[in-house]
Amino acid sequence: MYRVMVLFGGRSGEHEVSLASARSVIAGLERAGHEVVPVGITREGRWLAGGDPLRELEASAGGKDGTSGPPTLAAHRPPAEIGSVDVVFPVLHGPYGEDGTIQGLLELAGVPYVGAGVLASAVGMDKITMKKVFAHHGLPQVRWVELTRKRWRGCRKEALRELEEELGFPCFVKPSNLGSSVGISRATDPEGLAAALDAAAELDRRIIVEAGVEAREIEVSVLGNEDPEVSVPGEIVVRRGEFYDYEAKYSEGGMELRVPAGIPEETAAEIRRTARIAYEAIDAAGMARVDFFLERGTDRVLLNEINTIPGFTATSVYSRLWEASGLPYERLLERLVELALERHAGKR
């Protein structure tokens, strides 16, 4: 058995999602017999160790600082326990947790950690860079255009005209470096596109705009280092809203996951093969969820994105797909710890 530090909370807009994932991960690791060292990070970037940091963050989730009192540790200082654990399990979604920043800190500390390294985390987080890497590998994607905040604010009419000509309507506007569908808007006309670009520009200096497609949403989970395995595919059916946005993902009844997806075996095989290529293309490790569009009418498979720290409760898509593939939640957690230790040993 191992001493596992679970990191959760964080400075991103997915703070509450991280807390839900952490509660499930901590319980699963403890049921498997591991010693868990919980460490929380507030919305302000302060680290909390000792006592019950998960309860403290949950109790004050609506507060500005994310704490109910003085910080347990000085601001932005990792706890001393980081050097006394066997492995770190980051359950930090979005910026400052999934983008290579915490991974860089753990690399400097020389501590094994679950999941992708600095490069893969950064590429997987940045939608524009990710899509360029996928294009280099010849992977099928929807048409997309990148735009900077400076260009949008300085050349609005020209940018709108180019986007309309290149992509048409509907289209989707996304901040390049936010996860979990945060800040994504669907635009159906020039006025809506301008409003969506204004909103995205408030959240990120780089923006990606993608052509809309009539498609089913299919996802698979990937597990492994040098020889990754891919789960059975599942289909996301949106029950609330026009598309799979943040509310649909995390509100009760917002979506339904159908496992296995009702698709032909050859299509499932193509999706699994493409997911593995995408995983290896960014040099991912440990885990990732890979999302696809299956275009209606043509059944054309289009790669959407890769998520290197997906939601991690026992009922999240990532774990449910592995459950359906014959790998129960506690064993999945143990396998991720083993992969982290294997990857760390391979660096020496």
Rank of each mutant, 00 (worst) to 15 (best):
L339F: 11
G192W: 13
R151V: 12
E107A: 12
P79H: 04
D189G: 13
R77G: 00
K249G: 13
E217C: 03
D126M: 03
K347P: 06
G10H: 10
L163I: 14
D126R: 00
E191H: 13
V173K: 10
F169T: 07
K131H: 05
Y318H: 10
R143L: 14
V118D: 00
P260Y: 10
G224H: 05
L7Q: 12
V36R: 09
T42Y: 09
V301P: 06
K127Q: 01
V85T: 04
G311K: 06
L341T: 09
S221Q: 03
Y113I: 07
L7N: 11
A199Y: 12
A135Q: 14
V173S: 08
R55M: 08
L339A: 12
E217M: 02
R331I: 02
L302C: 10
R343G: 03
L332K: 08
V114E: 03
G311E: 04
I102M: 15
H344Y: 14
M287F: 07
G33T: 01
E338D: 15
T42K: 02
A61Y: 11
A122F: 06
G50C: 08
G154H: 08
G224D: 11
E214H: 03
R31I: 03
V222D: 02
P140Y: 11
P78K: 08
I218G: 00
Y329Q: 10
G9P: 13
K347W: 05
R55H: 10
V142M: 11
R161K: 15
D99G: 07
E214Y: 00
E219S: 09
V259L: 09
P95K: 10
L48P: 00
V237S: 05
S251M: 12
I309D: 07
N225T: 03
I277T: 15
D52P: 07
V182L: 12
L178I: 00
K174N: 11
V37E: 14
V237R: 15
L197S: 02
E338I: 10
P79N: 05
A288C: 04
L119H: 06
L106N: 02
M130S: 15
Y246H: 13
A340L: 11
E266K: 14
L294A: 05
S231K: 03
V145P: 00
W144R: 04
P140C: 04
P233K: 01
R300S: 10
P95G: 00
M5P: 14
P170R: 05
E226C: 01
T188I: 04
E107D: 15
A281H: 01
E226Y: 01
D52K: 02
A248H: 03
T274Y: 12
G168A: 06
V222N: 08
M255L: 14
